[in-house]
């Protein structure tokens, strides 16, 4: 089948996945032992208020009715309200408030990992078995094994002690920023503000992207090694193709193919890992919001957030398939590609 038919098929398959995910979320929320109304009321609410909340949340309706309401609500964009964290606030509004910082953080994580991990990997592959290759590879392996949150903790303390340890003050360098603080994303047209926003997010982005960086390095290296030793590169050389073209046109393009699932897989990770990193760096993003909502029992908000996340993940998978379709013409043919 053609590549686009293959892509279309993957697109269609996403729908049951989306439905399944939200259904699972609903199931966890409603079927779990936690009573949302009780959580909202707290331990000393009165019976009347409790009953009122149950009515408002529709908790006494038959289960299938609740399910329909839940699903239709989500899919039509009605994300409900927060009941515990910010009672009465529309969940959509809250998400819109918290999302920009997570997006900013995510963007830089992906970028940093991409632009450090892949070139390092390609470099290691081109100069394989040299000293720099060993150093880079080993560094990548260890970097990959580091827990996000631990790295974040270490980085925070290193940066706050930067004056004593390294002799220069991180907070004051270039632009004044704090280390453990949400970046201010207002007025990004102004270059100073932009720089401040980038700098404030940089440590968190490095941490969040760290495991992906390690992976991309390793895979990039392997991919380059495989392509360099392949027959078509030798055939191209036999045609007289010069070295530089050989590397850029023939090796890199083919080496990118196995990297695609990693790049998008990494974005997938951000969604989970951001909880830890945002907590340590005190960035009020979606991950942080999710965590707070969960431990405070604000289940309606949790449900909506989970839906957003699932949507994101499915969307990312579609982007990944799209990239694959564009990059590898063999996709769909005898299982080549994905």
């Amino acid at each position: 089948m053609t590549r686009w038919r293959y892509f279309g098929r993957r697109l269609v398959l996403s729908i049951p996945i989306l439905i399944f995910g939200t259904t699972a979320t609903f199931w966890i929320l409603r079927m779990g032992p936690i009573d949302p109304a009780a959580a909202i009321i707290g331990p000393d609410g009165d019976q009347q208020a409790y009953q009122r909340i149950r009515d408002q949340l529709g908790l006494d309706e038959p289960l299938w009715q609740q399910y329909i309401d839940f699903m239709t609500g989500l899919f039509t964009g009605n994300l409900g309200q927060s009941w515990v964290l910010n009672p009465g606030t529309d969940a959509g509004v809250m998400i819109a408030q918290y999302a920009p910082r997570t997006i900013w953080l995510g963007f830089w994580s992906v970028l940093i990992a991409l632009f450090i991990g892949i070139p390092l990997g390609f470099y290691a592959g081109l100069n394989s078995n040299s000293w720099s290759d060993y150093v880079a590879s080993f560094g990548g392996i260890v970097w990959r094994a580091m827990p996000n949150f631990w790295l974040a903790v270490i980085l925070v303390s290193l940066l706050s002690q930067s004056q004593q340890l390294f002799g220069f003050n991180w907070q004051g360098w270039l632009v004044q920023t704090d280390i453990v603080t949400p970046p201010s994303l207002s007025n990004l047209q102004n270059p100073t503000n932009l720089l401040a926003a980038i700098k404030a997010t940089l440590p968190a982005a490095v941490v969040l992207g760290s495991s992906s960086m390690g992976n991309e390095m390793r895979i990039g290296r392997t991919a380059v090694l495989e392509t360099i030793n392949s027959n078509y590169v030798e055939a191209a050389k036999a045609k007289g193709v010069p070295g530089r073209t050989l590397v850029w046109k023939h090796v890199f393009r083919n080496a990118l193919v196995p990297l695609v699932p990693i790049i998008t897989g990494e974005a997938f990770l951000l969604i989970g890992g951001s909880v830890l990193v945002e907590t340590v760096f005190a960035i009020n993003g979606l991950g942080y919001l999710f965590f707070q909502a969960t431990i405070n029992g604000d289940l309606p908000l949790v449900g909506s957030l989970m839906f957003i996340f699932i949507l994101l993940v499915v969307g990312l998978n579609i982007v990944q398939d799209l990239l694959y379709t564009l990059i590898d013409p063999r996709v769909g043919y005898e299982g080549g590609g994905a």
Partner: peptide, 25 residues
């Protein structure tokens, strides 16, 4: 389809959610 659906759920978030929801059992 089942496997992909389960994989589509962000694992850490589900872990957080489930461990909290089931914490009194």
């Amino acid at each position: 389809v089942t496997g992909d659906s389960v994989q589509a759920l962000p694992q850490l978030l589900v872990l957080i959610l489930l461990s909290f929801v089931l914490s009194d059992t």
